[in-house]
Design a protein around this nucleic acid. Sequence first.
DNA 1: TCTGGGGTCCTAGGACCC
DNA 2: TCTGGGGTCCTAGGACCC
Length: 420
Amino acid sequence: MYALVDGNNFYASCERVFNPALNGKPVVVLSNNDGIIIARSNEAKAMGIKMGIPAFQIKKQIENGEVHAFSSNFALYGDMSQRMMQIFSGFTPQVEIYSIDEAFLDFAGFQNTDFKQLGIELKKRVRKYIGIPVSVGFGPTKTLAKIANRIAKKKMPQVGVALIDTPEKIQLALKLTPIEEVWGIGRRYASFLQEHGVKTAWDFTRLPDAFIRKNMSVNGLRTKEELLGTSCIPVELVPPPKKAIRTARTFSKNTSDLIYIEEAIADFAAKSARKLREEKAVANLLTVFLKTNRFDTKKPYYAKSFTLQIDPPTSSSILLIKKAKEALKIIYKEGLGYKKAGVILSGIVPEENRQLSLFEAGEYHKHRQIMKIMDKINTATGKEILKIGAQGQSRAWRLKQEHRSRRYTTRWDELITIKI
DNA sequence: TCTGGGGTCCTAGGACCC
DNA sequence: TCTGGGGTCCTAGGACCC
């Protein structure tokens, strides 16, 4: 038996933990730059506020206090997430952290367990210690656990726990689940399947294997098997090493200024490099991309990327910034208003497997020492106190965050400063 | 005026090798 | 008139997830 546990309206719930006056009120959380809606409380959903819509569409309701809006505060959500996962691991050591707000729990070997009761207990404990409401779905496969979770949330919100443990319940659950709600069936496949008369998860399991294989690759087939109760997606207790690391931002304003863009790209490269060092890895490919505003119908859309080989592979912010600037110069065209840019590191290998070239050993160790100290200080202070000069001070491209809450759980200095 | 960010996997087709 | 077979690796594009 597997469980899928997730935080209800996770980001909105995190904000409420520190602002209980907002319980029962419409709350939304905005993306970077206060751009779009990325989380909604039930009350906000009930008002018809859709996921992913641009924030300006509900600007009025935010300003007149009808809706409470928060800029995203990922330092807070990340920390709350860790605490929540900690509670999960008190129920089984087999926990796969699937995303910031959800985890698969593997209950292999739990004989004669009342899972429903276990789910209720888990919910209670998370609520008590973390303050976040969660939903729990149990099923014999991960895909069915997902479905059970959805049913718990939609059909039995008072309990918030659902269990699929017999063939009869599997069938019923599949018939209750619209095809577009199935894990692994996205927008494209859903509309394709609907055109072929598939409305529910149950209809999908009636399709011939050959048809699924031909149109949806082996993944489609796997989903079918999982829906029928045969587990083929294992729980991953150890996160696999990253294959790509990316840092990208939308600028709050269009800019054509190469100096500012260079600064932004340098900062993205440094941030990516730091994530790379956290993985204890080095990269041998670096991609820089640059885009104009894709929503502007009056001007031609320009989006280009360029990838450079990094030889020998490195995780040094200094070297990666240098490379990123090179790549930027290749794709930068004067006179365009750029809206978004980013840096992607790939070709990632563990640091210990790194091929050392004969002549760079000295420089490599020098950089390594500098980075180590930099990371140590920045981690200890919780701020980016030490930076490479190229990352700049002006931050003209900085994020717009008009509604950010405090970093309640991770930034004590900030709290104290505000009190004074 | 204003539209996010960070990932993964699969497949087809081309380049290249013997 | 006639133009092999078998394999690997890489990349771009398209699908998916949160």
